[in-house]
Nucleic acid binder design. Sequence first.
DNA 1: CTCGTCGAGTTAGAGCCTCTAACGAACGCT
DNA 2: AGCGTTCGTTAGAGGCTCTAACTCGACGAG
Lengths: 251, 251
Amino acid sequence: MAGSFGSSGSSDDAHGSGKASSPRSRYRDQVRAEIKAAALEQIRAGGAPALSLNAVAKGLGLTGPALYKYFRGRDDLLTELICDGYDDAAAAMRAAADRAAGAPPRQRLHALATAFRAWATGAPHVYQLLAGTPSPGYQAPPETADRARAVLGPLLGVLGQGDCRGAALDLRAEMRCWLNGSPPVQQWVEGWAPDADAATALAGTVTAWARLHGVVGLEVQGLFGGMGHRPGTLLHAEMENLADALGLPAD
Amino acid sequence: MAGSFGSSGSSDDAHGSGKASSPRSRYRDQVRAEIKAAALEQIRAGGAPALSLNAVAKGLGLTGPALYKYFRGRDDLLTELICDGYDDAAAAMRAAADRAAGAPPRQRLHALATAFRAWATGAPHVYQLLAGTPSPGYQAPPETADRARAVLGPLLGVLGQGDCRGAALDLRAEMRCWLNGSPPVQQWVEGWAPDADAATALAGTVTAWARLHGVVGLEVQGLFGGMGHRPGTLLHAEMENLADALGLPAD
DNA sequence: CTCGTCGAGTTAGAGCCTCTAACGAACGCT
DNA sequence: AGCGTTCGTTAGAGGCTCTAACTCGACGAG
């Protein structure tokens, strides 16, 4: 339980030469992973603002400045944790999609939504980390956009089987413009939903994303606290309604 | 432009006696308002983590510790800004509701949604402030729940005119339990939607809240950046779909 | 096996921050 | 005019991020 955040172990050394498994660099990678794990524990306990490099170092039995041999600074560490978070969420979504592979679309949508919520509520502060302003001048690096796409990918395959009606047609028209303007997005959609109309799949996925974030974001930030309902019920209703609006085949 | 955040000027002195307009306390209230305005400016520029009491004091021409005569600490100041933010949002919603008073429900729903989004995008960091973890150990005070209710109030009157179907019935059942369990919520709903079924109004409002937060939250956090669509289109489609699902009369 | 090199970890310190304590000085009230 | 309240100050404790300079042990080539 509780979402194991494995480090993705990206060995992006500055000098980028080979020989990634020298004993020196293996030790380095291990310490990096330990730092990330300890930092994640702090974030899980008190949110992003509570992350202190000094405290992390002390927890690992060394002094503060030592961490700067492994990360360029606090923001660098946060960025890696954010990327790991996206990867973790993407893995959870992909696993859910695989588990529900043969099921009808509506059921697959519910499976994906449930997986998304389970991942987010398993580590609420990490979810907030992906979408907040953790540091005064923090700027999310551009690669996070790709990783966010990886999280939403499985939705494309399911929602591409629907069709837009009513006000969603306006949304689809904008999606079509976006697709025409940016080939990587087009490739992304075609990779996940090859047989569907790309703009339809995209419109449905963006809508689903907004609904997922709506329910899960409020839940994670504790704004449902004291309310007498289970967020799962709301999420189920939201997905059911989306499936209805897109005409997804019932079970 | 961009949403004047007037201080709500709550004169909650500790000794709570009368005589709120003595020259001393009027000066005090004015300085408090200046502090809050300067702090808000910092937050608008760099988000909640960028708020520094020292910098605020320097900006007002005095030293850091002087602010502790006016606020118990950083969290206290943040709490007041959060409350002011809620009040501001509630005022914007109420104004929109008044402007669209005679219109059909569907149109009123769009007016409220547009007002909500306009308020949030006018001060994105303030929106994030209301729903984030601004400080390591920060705990939102209980009165924020009442203020959040004030923001959503106008939605009750509109959505109480719909009726739940499908999966929303489960949600409505939970709402009914909640209503039975907490009289203040019941009073709140009846104050805004006296002629409607309270559980239906509540279910619709919670759903609308989640959808508003879904679209606006993603937009405010910049996650739509680089995407080729206008969030307003998505929001319109979401509200239109909600109106359809609840059977709100068309224009 | 030896020795130069490289890097991990240290201390020292600058410059922020929040927040407390103690002190002068201005102000309003009686 | 005197007195108490309150405002703003300085001094300082303790924390943070991050840099600079140093020590020392381990790795790797000969």
